[in-house]
Structures are given as structure tokens and as C-alpha cells.
Design a protein around this nucleic acid. Structure first.
Lengths: 223, 223
DNA sequence: CGTCTATTCAAGTCATCTATTGAATGATTG
DNA sequence: CAATCATTCAATAGATGACTTGAATAGACG
């Protein structure tokens, strides 16, 4: 592109291009949003708090390096992550940041207070508990996201409705709540609410995108 | 930092900061160089083909987000990756780029011609073969890098000296050559040279940083 | 076939990044 | 304690990125 560069640098420039696409908080946000299930530009724009034009441009940056793909469905264009590598990459980025950036640590502490104490259940643990059938898996995301895809066998009660709909949960079983990913507060809040009401509740360590990326069973609500 | 942002965006901004540090070909180059073993700024500058001041600034960008750490040793300041997460992150970046960016594919093809045909040995395979003791592990990197750290039990013959020093290789054993990483050409060249001379030779699929990051046995030449 | 809608493009502005230069720092060595 | 060396800082010019605005596209649907 610029001056004379060897083949090695040319390759590294391609890697750098992918990193550059990840190097913006709004794009990471969009990436996590599309990882919940494919969505149109306008929905993404309002979820991310951006203008439509700006969202479109960010999405194109992501598409240019192959992090997302798009398809037309009727009037709108739906975006989704190109594959599970992408989720793994974001996970690696998150892990490194968590480990090394002091600021992340501070934010986590302030954000989650000591909610970390609510022990999280790993994916593997959840899988084996589900086999026993003694737990209820609770998806606390909004209905649209649940419809786009959720853990097979989970029930959907959005966090905001949880208090009123407690009776929909089978009594006497432990509840495992999950939402969008490792930093999604919804699941924390849900567990806090449920314990408040005397239910046995824990949260899943990570969220739906990781579950799907791991190849575990997923359901969607067909329209 | 800029306008009012919620805690979620603040967190994503930290992730983005790490990605931003990776979003430059020279910094990725430096990162791979320090992954070979810790080195001073001047050595890194000349290896990367950059000015010393510029190299220093790039290294500080990497240090600011915790991707590398530095320590003073006599007159110079030595840099190294902060830990194995960093190498995993670069690997994830590389895998995503390989998979999605058509340009990388093109470069790989042009660079390695059909050398890919020289089947590579995975780390696990190498470990089990080493137990049998029937192979010679050959490190073809420059002596400084070998001294800074190498696969335990490997012998060091830099590629440029290989032709003259063939007799140092135990006869009758298969040779497995490795160098800096998945894209390091040295190992490819070495295998080609060795096969030319009628020896049985293969290359290790990845390089020394990956080996060390996997927690496999490493030796260094003490000074 | 024209209208509508979702999305994209183009242009402009302000901010941030890169690489260069030359000077400043600060630990080590005599 | 002064000289030396490796490294870092400061200031700059040119390039690239982010977001806004308003116009253009291109399917979908009557």
C-alpha cells in the first residue's frame, strides 16, 4: 500500500486490518449484538445507540475483513458473525484485556460489586445437569433475541417481567440463568431477584453466543 | 472518555484499546519478535527495520495495554510478551484472518508456493516422536534467538550454515525443523535443503513461541 | 411502473495515529 | 562525578479514522 514492503509485512498488514476492525468499542458492541442472532441495520443502530448511517459504515468495516456476513431478507439486510472463529477471537481479546488492563479490573469490580460471589456454572456443568433434568434453564434476554436463537430447552422470561412471572418456573428445581455473554448484567440481576424470592438460582458463566459457538444444542422460534 | 458512555461501553473501550495496539503491522511484527525471546530496543528496531525511536514508541503502545512487559538488564531494557495469553490472541487473530481475508490466502499461496506439500508435524506428534528418540529436532533460527530459548533437546544450526554443518546431524534419524512460527520461512527452506541432500526431513507445524506457550519443555543457554 | 423503505454512498469536519527529528533522561562505567 | 550509552520524550507534518448530513440506490409491494 504505502512504501515497498516484503511479503511478511504484507501478511501482517492483513492481520492488522482485522485487528483494526476490532479496534473500536462500537464495532465490538455491534459484533456482540449480531452474535445474539442476525439483525437488520436499524435494529442494531438503536441497540447500539448509533445513527443508522454510522452503524451501516461500521458494519461494512466488519464485513470488509470478513468478521460479519450479510444477507437480504425482504426489505432489510441482516448481519451475522461469519463463523465461530469470530466469537473465539473476541473471547481471546477479552481474556487478554481482563488479565492485563488494570482498568478492566476496576470496571468489573465497580460494575458487578461483589456479585461475582454468585458462583457461575460452566457450560460443561450445565450440560451434565441438564441431562439429569433437575434444573430449569432461564433465558432472561428480550423476546426478539430469544426468538433468534436460544439454548435448547430454555424458557424465556425477560428480566423486566421476571417478578410478575415467577410462577412460570417449575417449583423445586434449581434455576440457571443466562443472557448475552460473560459481561451481561441481566443474568446477575435475575439470579439476585430469584434468590430474593427464596429460589435456588445460579448463572451460566458465559452467554448464548459461546454456547452456540461450542456446538451445543440450540433452538429458535420459527416465524 | 469522550461523551457520556455507560459502563458497558467503557469496558468495550478497554477491549478496543487492546485491539488498537494490535492494529498495526509493525507492532505485530515486534510482538512476534519478542515472542522469540526478550530483546532490547535496538535489536528489535533493526530486526523490524524501524528507527529506534519509532520502535520505542511502538513498544510503549504495546506495554500500555499490557501485551508486553519490560525489565532493565544492565544498560538496556529488555521486552518480552507479558504471558501466553498474548500468543494465543495473536494465534486467534491469525486464524480469523486466514479464514476470512481472501488476500491472506493469496499471499500464502504466492509465498510458500507448493511448499505446503512438505507435510508439517503437529506439536503433539513431535512430543510423542521425541519420546521414541528416533528424531532430531533442529532449530534453524539465529544463535541469539536459540540462546534465548528453544525446544528442549533441539540442536541449533542456523539456516545459513546448514549446508556446511550437515555432518552435525545424527545420521539415520528423521529431522524435524522449526523456527519462529507458522509463517517462518526458515523451516521450509531447511527442510528443502535437507531433502535435497537425501535426508528425511519435515517441519514443525508452528514455531517456538507456540511450543513454549503450550507449556512444553524449553531450554535456554545460560550466559 | 412508480412509490416506499432500508440501506448505502459521498463529502466535509474534527480528532487520532504514524514516523521523523532532535533533544532529554537516567542508569552504568570509568 | 562526569561521560557514555540505550532508551524515551516532544514537536511536527502527513495520513487515516469517526461521525454528521443529505442525497442515491435498489429491492419490495401495491
Amino acid at each position: 500500500m504505502s512504501t515497498r514492503t516484503g511479503p511478511k509485512l504484507a501478511m501482517l498488514e492483513q492481520f492488522a486490518a482485522v485487528a483494526k476492525a476490532l479496534a473500536n468499542a462500537h464495532r465490538l458492541d455491534l459484533l456482540e449484538l449480531v452474535a445474539q442472532g442476525e439483525r437488520g441495520v436499524e435494529a442494531l443502530a438503536s441497540a447500539a445507540g448509533l445513527s443508522v448511517a454510522n452503524t451501516s459504515q461500521h458494519l461494512q468495516v466488519l464485513r470488509r475483513v470478513g468478521l460479519v456476513v450479510s444477507r437480504r431478507n425482504g426489505p432489510q439486510i441482516l448481519y451475522r458473525p461469519s463463523d465461530d472463529d469470530v466469537i473465539a477471537l473476541i473471547g481471546a481479546l477479552r481474556r487478554t484485556a481482563e488479565r492485563h488492563v488494570a482498568e478492566v479490573d476496576r470496571l468489573l469490580r465497580g460494575w458487578f460489586h461483589e456479585k461475582d460471589a454468585l458462583e457461575a456454572l460452566s457450560r460443561d456443568d450445565l450440560v451434565s445437569r441438564m441431562k439429569d433434568g433437575l434444573i430449569t434453564v432461564l433465558d432472561v434476554r428480550p423476546p426478539e433475541e430469544y426468538a433468534a436463537g436460544h439454548i435448547a430447552g430454555s424458557v424465556n422470561i425477560p428480566l423486566r417481567d421476571l417478578r410478575q412471572r415467577l410462577d412460570e418456573l417449575p417449583p423445586g428445581t434449581e434455576v440457571v440463568a443466562y443472557c448475552r455473554g460473560p459481561y451481561c448484567v441481566l443474568a446477575y440481576e435475575a439470579v439476585a431477584t430469584l434468590r430474593d424470592r427464596g429460589l435456588e438460582a445460579r448463572r451460566l458463566e458465559d452467554g448464548f453466543p459461546e454456547w452456540r459457538a461450542a456446538g451445543l444444542p440450540v433452538d429458535a422460534v420459527v416465524n
